[in-house]
């Protein structure tokens, strides 16, 4: 038999890791913890066992504000008509490096 459902929920935290070779924090998953210190410690134990971690961010899932799928066409700038934002738009001489 199970214990009674607790009357509270343990907060869910999203975990972001920047690895040694990485430039950005990547979302790797989530975990439950009572507070941010515990979340950080658990994130270290769960998501950096293979030396992946250099920097860990934990954020309460409820604090994340995300765009909606339905926002679609109007929310996102349609990229088709601004090709100059992409590097491939420009022709540069091969001999010139670091461009």
């Amino acid at each position: 038999m199970t214990d009674m459902m607790p009357l509270y929920e343990v907060p869910l935290y999203e975990v972001f890791i920047r690895s040694k070779r990485g430039l950005d924090h990547r979302h790797v998953g989530s975990l439950h913890a009572e507070d941010s210190e515990q979340a950080l410690e658990y994130a270290r134990d769960v998501y950096t066992r293979r030396g992946e971690g250099v920097s860990i961010w934990v954020v309460k899932s409820s604090d994340i504000v995300a765009s909606q799928e339905g926002d679609g066409a109007s929310f996102y700038d349609p990229q088709d008509d601004k090709p100059y934002r992409h590097a491939t738009f420009y022709k540069v001489p091969d001999e010139v490096s670091n461009l």
């Binding site: 975990l31 658990y42 134990d45 769960v46 066992r49």
Partner: peptide
Amino acid sequence: PSLEEELALAN
């Protein structure tokens, strides 16, 4: 007591 704690203790 929790799955998170499993990983921590194993470490």
